[in-house]
C-alpha cells in the first residue's frame, strides 16, 4: 500500500491518502517482459504482413493474418488494485507493463 500518512498537529488528525494513479508508483517487475509471438504479431501493422486479394468484380479483400489487433493488458498496482489498458502500440504496452503512468490515469 503506497499511502502517505501525515500527522496534523492542529487538529490531531492522522491522514492517509488513498493514492491516485499518479501516486501509485511503479509495480515491481518480477520477471522481464517477453511478449509472445502472437501478441507481437497482433501489434504489427506493416504492409507486408497483409495480403491483398483483388477479385474480378472489383471487390478487394485484405487478410490481416493476425496483425492489426488491439491488445488488452493488466497490472496490479502497489495498492493491490487491478488496472487494465488496451492498445495497438507495442511501445505503449511495454510502458504499461513496466508500470509507467499513462495519460488519463488521473481520472
Amino acid at each position: 500500500m503506497n499511502a502517505r500518512v501525515i500527522v496534523v498537529p492542529l487538529v490531531s488528525l492522522l491522514f492517509i491518502f488513498a493514492a491516485g494513479a499518479a501516486e501509485k508508483g511503479k509495480p515491481e517487475l518480477e520477471k522481464p517482459i517477453q511478449l509472445s509471438e502472437k501478441t507481437r504479431l497482433a501489434f504489427d501493422r506493416s504492409p507486408e504482413r497483409a495480403q491483398v486479394h483483388q477479385h474480378a468484380d472489383g471487390m478487394k479483400v485484405v487478410e490481416f493474418n493476425g496483425t492489426r489487433q488491439m491488445v488488452m493488458m493488466a497490472r496490479i498496482g502497489p495498492d493491490g488494485t487491478v488496472e487494465t489498458f488496451c492498445t495497438d502500440s507495442e511501445h505503449q504496452a511495454h510502458q504499461f507493463l513496466t508500470g509507467e503512468a499513462l495519460p488519463g490515469e488521473e481520472k
Binding site: 509495480p27 515491481e28 517487475l29 518480477e30 520477471k31 517482459i33 517477453q34 511478449l35 509472445s36 502472437k38 501478441t39 497482433a42 472489383g58 471487390m59 478487394k60 479483400v61 485484405v62 487478410e63 490481416f64 496483425t67 492489426r68 489487433q69 488491439m70 491488445v71 488488452m72 493488458m73 493488466a74 497490472r75 496490479i76 487494465t84 504496452a93 504499461f96 507493463l97 513496466t98 508500470g99
Partner: peptide, 24 residues
Amino acid sequence: DSKFCSGNAATLGSAGPTHSVNNF
C-alpha cells in the same frame, strides 16, 4: 494461449478483424 504473465502484470488477450473488404 500461453502469454506473458508475471506476478503483477500480464497480457490478457487481443482481438481484431481477420480481414477487411471493400468495393463489394
